[in-house]
């Protein structure tokens, strides 16, 4: 865990300090910033390994910070919301966040989330570490995905989602299966995480995201990678 750096973007100094203490206790190196602009200034020259962004920020808001960091990097991002508002959560995920936490969160849960996002992509079955479907080529060991020979940039979580489904092509994975495998959530995890990540994945690998060729929705059951 040593050497892993986390960037906290939070305008409330007390929360920032307390969360820094928690994370330093876990052995992380922590950078704090109080605004989106400052966060981008810190992140651009030396990207952190995980970013924790509060949605409500003075100046540019958390969604925008998330989008701008996504343009620079595939780093895991956790959104922190002060509301259980469904729109905020989905908007955060669509802006590129990998997971979210609602205030007040349990510090143990925060640590667990960070650990889950930092896990290395490891397909359940190594046999399919190299998979070619139509125009899509996935090399799990290299961590690369190519569509029609062109390399596609996936975030850490998107890549793991694809690798998980590629481990058993044509098998239907329920949302709960994917939550457990990719996010390390139990059955009660939020299925919207899966839905939004599948949507984001499709925009990157599908020629027509509205009519997917590879990642198919199986109504009432879940998703599958179709060969």
């Amino acid at each position: 865990m040593m050497g892993t750096s986390i960037l906290i973007v939070e305008d409330d100094e007390r929360i920032r300090t307390a969360v820094r203490l928690v994370l330093e206790e876990e052995g992380y190196h922590v950078d704090e910033t109080e605004s989106g602009e400052a966060a981008l200034d810190v992140f651009a020259p030396s990207p952190s390994d995980v970013v924790l962004i509060d949605i409500m920020l003075p100046g540019i808001d958390g969604f925008e910070v998330c989008r701008r960091i996504r343009r620079l990097s595939d780093v895991p991002i956790i959104m922190v919301t002060a509301r259980d508002d469904s729109h905020d959560i989905v908007a955060g995920l669509e802006a590129g966040a990998d997971d979210y936490l609602s205030k007040p969160f349990d510090p143990k849960v925060l640590s667990a989330r960070i650990r889950a996002l930092l896990r290395r992509a490891r397909p359940s079955e190594a046999a399919h570490s190299h998979l070619v479907v139509d125009q899509l080529e996935l090399v799990a060991d290299e961590g690369t995905v190519r569509v029609a020979g062109q390399e596609v940039h996936l975030t850490h979580t998107e890549f793991r989602l694809l690798v998980e489904m590629a481990s058993s092509p044509n098998k239907v994975f329920s949302r709960e299966d994917l939550l457990a495998a990719v996010w390390d959530y139990d059955y009660l995890g939020d299925g919207r995480l899966v839905d939004v990540h599948v949507r984001r994945l499709r925009t990157k690998i599908e020629a027509d995201p509205a009519n997917p060729r590879y990642v198919m929705t199986v109504r009432g059951m879940g998703y599958k990678l179709q060969t």
Binding site: I15, A18, P104, P107
Partner: peptide, 18 residues
């Protein structure tokens, strides 16, 4: 109350760890 509670929970978490 959410903000101070977040601070409190994180701080108590640090104490729990020690």
């Amino acid at each position: 109350l959410r903000s101070p509670l977040t601070t409190l929970k994180a701080s108590v978490g640090v104490l729990e760890a020690r």
